[in-house]
Amino acid sequence: MARRLAIYSALLLIAVCFLLPFTWLLISSVQPGSGLSAKVTWEFSLVNFQDVLNAETVFRPMLNSVIISGSTAIFTAVVATFAAYPLSRYRTRFGRGFLYIILFATGLPITAVMVPVYAMYSRFNLIDSVPATIAFMTASALPFAVWMMKNFMDSVPLNLEEAAWTDGAGWFQSLHRIVLPLMVPGLTVVFIFTFVLQWGNFFVPFILLLSPEKQPASVTIYTFFSQYGQVAYGQLAAFSILYTVPVILLYSAVSKVLGGAFSLTGAVKG
Protein backbone atom coordinates (compact mmCIF):
# COMPACT_ATOMS: atom_id res chain seq x y z
CA MET A 1 0.00 0.00 0.00
CA ALA A 2 2.76 2.40 0.93
CA ARG A 3 4.53 1.36 -2.26
CA ARG A 4 1.50 2.15 -4.40
CA LEU A 5 1.14 5.51 -2.68
CA ALA A 6 4.80 6.29 -3.41
CA ILE A 7 4.40 5.37 -7.08
CA TYR A 8 1.26 7.47 -7.49
CA SER A 9 2.80 10.47 -5.75
CA ALA A 10 5.89 10.20 -7.98
CA LEU A 11 3.70 10.07 -11.08
CA LEU A 12 1.63 13.00 -9.83
CA LEU A 13 4.77 15.05 -9.21
CA ILE A 14 6.13 14.29 -12.69
CA ALA A 15 2.77 15.11 -14.26
CA VAL A 16 2.64 18.48 -12.46
CA CYS A 17 6.21 19.28 -13.56
CA PHE A 18 5.24 18.55 -17.17
CA LEU A 19 2.10 20.66 -16.88
CA LEU A 20 3.60 23.77 -15.22
CA PRO A 21 5.55 25.18 -18.21
CA PHE A 22 2.33 25.09 -20.26
CA THR A 23 0.20 26.95 -17.74
CA TRP A 24 1.08 30.58 -18.40
CA LEU A 25 0.87 30.09 -22.17
CA LEU A 26 -2.64 28.66 -21.79
CA ILE A 27 -3.86 31.16 -19.19
CA SER A 28 -2.41 34.35 -20.68
CA SER A 29 -3.95 33.61 -24.08
CA VAL A 30 -7.44 34.29 -22.65
CA GLN A 31 -6.44 37.23 -20.43
CA PRO A 32 -6.67 40.65 -22.04
CA GLY A 33 -3.42 42.60 -22.07
CA SER A 34 -1.42 39.91 -20.30
CA GLY A 35 2.35 40.09 -20.35
CA LEU A 36 5.10 37.87 -19.04
CA SER A 37 4.15 38.26 -15.38
CA ALA A 38 2.21 35.25 -14.19
CA LYS A 39 -0.49 37.28 -12.41
CA VAL A 40 -3.92 35.77 -12.94
CA THR A 41 -6.59 38.48 -13.18
CA TRP A 42 -9.64 36.17 -13.57
CA GLU A 43 -10.72 38.17 -16.60
CA PHE A 44 -11.67 35.98 -19.52
CA SER A 45 -11.68 37.29 -23.05
CA LEU A 46 -10.80 36.16 -26.55
CA VAL A 47 -9.41 39.57 -27.43
CA ASN A 48 -5.87 38.17 -27.84
CA PHE A 49 -7.12 35.76 -30.46
CA GLN A 50 -9.06 38.53 -32.20
CA ASP A 51 -5.94 40.70 -32.24
CA VAL A 52 -3.78 38.14 -34.00
CA LEU A 53 -6.40 36.68 -36.34
CA ASN A 54 -5.55 38.85 -39.31
CA ALA A 55 -3.93 38.19 -42.65
CA GLU A 56 -0.50 39.47 -41.74
CA THR A 57 -0.02 37.82 -38.34
CA VAL A 58 -1.71 34.45 -38.60
CA PHE A 59 -3.49 33.65 -41.85
CA ARG A 60 -0.71 34.22 -44.38
CA PRO A 61 2.04 32.49 -42.36
CA MET A 62 -0.29 29.57 -41.65
CA LEU A 63 -1.17 29.33 -45.35
CA ASN A 64 2.57 29.36 -46.15
CA SER A 65 3.05 26.59 -43.59
CA VAL A 66 0.29 24.55 -45.22
CA ILE A 67 1.84 25.03 -48.65
CA ILE A 68 5.41 24.30 -47.56
CA SER A 69 4.72 21.37 -45.21
CA GLY A 70 1.93 20.02 -47.44
CA SER A 71 4.05 19.93 -50.61
CA THR A 72 6.99 18.50 -48.69
CA ALA A 73 4.77 15.77 -47.23
CA ILE A 74 3.24 14.92 -50.63
CA PHE A 75 6.59 14.75 -52.44
CA THR A 76 8.18 12.82 -49.60
CA ALA A 77 5.35 10.27 -49.45
CA VAL A 78 5.39 9.70 -53.22
CA VAL A 79 9.17 9.45 -53.61
CA ALA A 80 9.46 7.29 -50.48
CA THR A 81 6.77 4.91 -51.76
CA PHE A 82 8.62 4.42 -55.04
CA ALA A 83 11.92 3.92 -53.25
CA ALA A 84 10.45 1.52 -50.73
CA TYR A 85 9.06 -0.84 -53.38
CA PRO A 86 12.33 -2.32 -54.68
CA LEU A 87 13.83 -2.17 -51.18
CA SER A 88 10.97 -4.21 -49.77
CA ARG A 89 10.34 -6.54 -52.72
CA TYR A 90 13.74 -7.50 -54.11
CA ARG A 91 16.79 -8.30 -52.08
CA THR A 92 19.79 -6.98 -53.95
CA ARG A 93 23.19 -5.99 -52.71
CA PHE A 94 22.62 -2.43 -53.92
CA GLY A 95 19.29 -2.27 -52.08
CA ARG A 96 20.90 -3.32 -48.82
CA GLY A 97 23.68 -0.78 -49.23
CA PHE A 98 21.11 1.88 -49.92
CA LEU A 99 19.16 0.94 -46.79
CA TYR A 100 22.30 1.30 -44.70
CA ILE A 101 22.97 4.73 -46.18
CA ILE A 102 19.35 5.73 -45.52
CA LEU A 103 19.58 4.67 -41.89
CA PHE A 104 22.93 6.37 -41.50
CA ALA A 105 21.52 9.60 -42.97
CA THR A 106 18.60 9.65 -40.50
CA GLY A 107 21.18 10.23 -37.77
CA LEU A 108 23.05 13.13 -39.35
CA PRO A 109 22.43 16.55 -37.80
CA ILE A 110 20.41 18.66 -40.27
CA THR A 111 21.49 21.82 -38.43
CA ALA A 112 25.06 21.17 -39.54
CA VAL A 113 24.03 20.53 -43.15
CA MET A 114 22.35 23.96 -43.30
CA VAL A 115 25.57 26.01 -43.57
CA PRO A 116 26.77 24.29 -46.77
CA VAL A 117 23.19 24.22 -48.11
CA TYR A 118 22.93 27.98 -47.59
CA ALA A 119 26.24 28.45 -49.37
CA MET A 120 25.13 26.25 -52.26
CA TYR A 121 21.73 27.96 -52.53
CA SER A 122 23.19 31.47 -52.51
CA ARG A 123 25.55 30.47 -55.28
CA PHE A 124 22.70 29.25 -57.49
CA ASN A 125 20.39 32.12 -56.47
CA LEU A 126 17.96 29.82 -54.69
CA ILE A 127 17.80 31.72 -51.41
CA ASP A 128 14.28 32.98 -50.64
CA SER A 129 12.74 30.54 -53.11
CA VAL A 130 9.82 28.51 -51.76
CA PRO A 131 10.19 25.58 -54.25
CA ALA A 132 13.92 25.27 -53.48
CA THR A 133 13.13 25.23 -49.75
CA ILE A 134 10.55 22.50 -50.32
CA ALA A 135 13.12 20.52 -52.33
CA PHE A 136 15.61 20.61 -49.47
CA MET A 137 12.96 19.76 -46.88
CA THR A 138 11.84 16.78 -48.99
CA ALA A 139 15.42 15.53 -49.30
CA SER A 140 16.01 15.88 -45.56
CA ALA A 141 12.73 14.13 -44.71
CA LEU A 142 13.36 11.26 -47.14
CA PRO A 143 15.70 8.98 -45.18
CA PHE A 144 13.30 8.45 -42.30
CA ALA A 145 10.26 8.31 -44.60
CA VAL A 146 11.84 5.64 -46.84
CA TRP A 147 12.75 3.59 -43.76
CA MET A 148 9.22 3.79 -42.33
CA MET A 149 7.62 3.10 -45.71
CA LYS A 150 9.82 0.04 -46.31
CA ASN A 151 8.81 -1.38 -42.93
CA PHE A 152 5.12 -0.81 -43.66
CA MET A 153 5.49 -2.39 -47.11
CA ASP A 154 7.24 -5.44 -45.67
CA SER A 155 4.04 -6.29 -43.83
CA VAL A 156 2.05 -6.53 -47.08
CA PRO A 157 2.25 -10.23 -48.08
CA LEU A 158 4.12 -10.98 -51.27
CA ASN A 159 1.95 -13.80 -52.61
CA LEU A 160 -0.72 -11.39 -53.86
CA GLU A 161 1.76 -9.82 -56.24
CA GLU A 162 3.15 -13.08 -57.51
CA ALA A 163 -0.02 -13.69 -59.50
CA ALA A 164 0.25 -10.22 -60.98
CA TRP A 165 3.92 -10.72 -61.83
CA THR A 166 3.12 -13.97 -63.66
CA ASP A 167 0.55 -12.04 -65.65
CA GLY A 168 3.33 -9.69 -66.66
CA ALA A 169 2.54 -6.69 -64.48
CA GLY A 170 5.42 -4.25 -64.02
CA TRP A 171 6.51 -2.68 -60.74
CA PHE A 172 4.29 0.34 -61.16
CA GLN A 173 1.18 -1.74 -61.71
CA SER A 174 1.88 -4.07 -58.78
CA LEU A 175 2.61 -1.10 -56.54
CA HIS A 176 -0.39 0.93 -57.65
CA ARG A 177 -3.00 -1.85 -57.90
CA ILE A 178 -1.97 -4.31 -55.19
CA VAL A 179 0.44 -2.92 -52.60
CA LEU A 180 -0.78 0.66 -52.13
CA PRO A 181 -4.46 -0.15 -51.47
CA LEU A 182 -3.28 -2.48 -48.69
CA MET A 183 -1.05 0.07 -47.02
CA VAL A 184 -3.20 3.18 -46.85
CA PRO A 185 -2.61 3.42 -43.05
CA GLY A 186 1.16 3.31 -43.56
CA LEU A 187 1.01 5.94 -46.27
CA THR A 188 -1.14 8.15 -44.04
CA VAL A 189 1.31 7.85 -41.18
CA VAL A 190 4.29 8.79 -43.37
CA PHE A 191 2.38 11.75 -44.82
CA ILE A 192 1.14 13.08 -41.47
CA PHE A 193 4.45 12.51 -39.73
CA THR A 194 6.38 14.40 -42.42
CA PHE A 195 3.79 17.17 -42.42
CA VAL A 196 3.92 17.64 -38.64
CA LEU A 197 7.71 17.58 -38.55
CA GLN A 198 7.99 20.24 -41.25
CA TRP A 199 5.19 22.31 -39.72
CA GLY A 200 7.37 22.67 -36.65
CA ASN A 201 10.64 23.00 -38.59
CA PHE A 202 12.14 26.33 -37.60
CA PHE A 203 15.79 26.29 -38.61
CA VAL A 204 15.52 25.35 -42.30
CA PRO A 205 12.99 28.04 -43.39
CA PHE A 206 14.64 30.51 -40.98
CA ILE A 207 17.88 30.17 -42.96
CA LEU A 208 16.50 29.71 -46.49
CA LEU A 209 13.49 32.09 -46.62
CA LEU A 210 14.14 35.79 -46.02
CA SER A 211 10.98 37.65 -47.08
CA PRO A 212 8.35 37.72 -44.32
CA GLU A 213 5.57 37.14 -46.86
CA LYS A 214 7.10 33.80 -47.84
CA GLN A 215 7.95 32.58 -44.36
CA PRO A 216 5.90 29.86 -42.65
CA ALA A 217 4.37 30.34 -39.18
CA SER A 218 7.33 28.61 -37.48
CA VAL A 219 9.54 31.56 -38.49
CA THR A 220 7.07 34.47 -38.23
CA ILE A 221 6.05 33.34 -34.75
CA TYR A 222 9.69 33.71 -33.73
CA THR A 223 9.79 37.19 -35.29
CA PHE A 224 6.61 38.04 -33.40
CA PHE A 225 8.21 36.76 -30.19
CA SER A 226 11.36 38.84 -30.59
CA GLN A 227 9.32 41.97 -31.39
CA TYR A 228 6.32 41.74 -29.05
CA GLY A 229 7.05 38.78 -26.76
CA GLN A 230 7.85 41.02 -23.78
CA VAL A 231 4.84 43.31 -24.04
CA ALA A 232 2.12 41.24 -25.68
CA TYR A 233 2.76 37.74 -24.39
CA GLY A 234 -0.99 37.05 -24.41
CA GLN A 235 -1.11 37.61 -28.16
CA LEU A 236 1.96 35.45 -28.66
CA ALA A 237 0.27 32.76 -26.58
CA ALA A 238 -2.88 32.97 -28.71
CA PHE A 239 -0.78 32.72 -31.88
CA SER A 240 1.14 29.76 -30.40
CA ILE A 241 -2.09 27.93 -29.60
CA LEU A 242 -3.50 28.48 -33.09
CA TYR A 243 -0.20 27.29 -34.55
CA THR A 244 -0.03 24.20 -32.32
CA VAL A 245 -3.63 22.95 -32.62
CA PRO A 246 -3.17 21.36 -36.09
CA VAL A 247 -0.14 19.43 -34.80
CA ILE A 248 -2.02 18.04 -31.81
CA LEU A 249 -4.98 17.05 -34.00
CA LEU A 250 -2.77 15.29 -36.55
CA TYR A 251 -0.79 13.46 -33.86
CA SER A 252 -4.02 12.14 -32.37
CA ALA A 253 -5.08 11.05 -35.87
CA VAL A 254 -1.82 9.15 -36.30
CA SER A 255 -2.16 7.37 -32.99
CA LYS A 256 -5.71 6.38 -34.04
CA VAL A 257 -4.39 4.94 -37.32
CA LEU A 258 -1.73 2.99 -35.45
CA GLY A 259 -4.30 1.65 -33.00
CA GLY A 260 -3.33 3.76 -30.04
CA ALA A 261 0.32 2.78 -30.03
CA PHE A 262 2.89 5.14 -31.43
CA SER A 263 5.10 2.71 -33.29
CA LEU A 264 7.34 5.38 -34.76
CA THR A 265 9.96 4.14 -32.37
CA GLY A 266 9.71 0.65 -33.82
CA ALA A 267 12.97 1.15 -35.65
CA VAL A 268 14.76 1.69 -32.36
CA LYS A 269 13.89 -1.51 -30.60
CA GLY A 270 16.88 -3.38 -32.00
Binding site: P21, L25, L36, S37, A38, G200, F202, G229, Y243, I248
Partner: peptide, 23 residues
Protein backbone atom coordinates in the same frame (compact mmCIF):
# COMPACT_ATOMS: atom_id res chain seq x y z
CA UNK B 1 2.17 17.02 -25.39
CA UNK B 2 5.54 18.48 -24.39
CA UNK B 3 7.08 16.43 -27.19
CA UNK B 4 4.47 17.29 -29.82
CA UNK B 5 4.43 21.09 -29.56
CA UNK B 6 6.70 22.81 -32.11
CA UNK B 7 10.10 23.70 -30.67
CA UNK B 8 9.56 27.46 -30.93
CA UNK B 9 6.37 27.16 -28.88
CA UNK B 10 8.20 24.98 -26.36
CA UNK B 11 10.75 27.79 -26.14
CA UNK B 12 8.04 30.42 -25.48
CA UNK B 13 6.52 28.23 -22.76
CA UNK B 14 9.84 27.96 -20.95
CA UNK B 15 10.77 31.60 -21.53
CA UNK B 16 7.62 32.68 -19.69
CA UNK B 17 7.88 29.90 -17.10
CA UNK B 18 11.38 30.97 -16.04
CA UNK B 19 10.90 34.73 -16.46
CA UNK B 20 11.68 37.01 -13.53
CA UNK B 21 7.97 37.33 -12.78
CA UNK B 22 7.00 33.99 -14.29
CA UNK B 23 5.22 30.91 -12.96
Amino acid sequence: AAWAVPETVAGFCWYAFLHRTGT
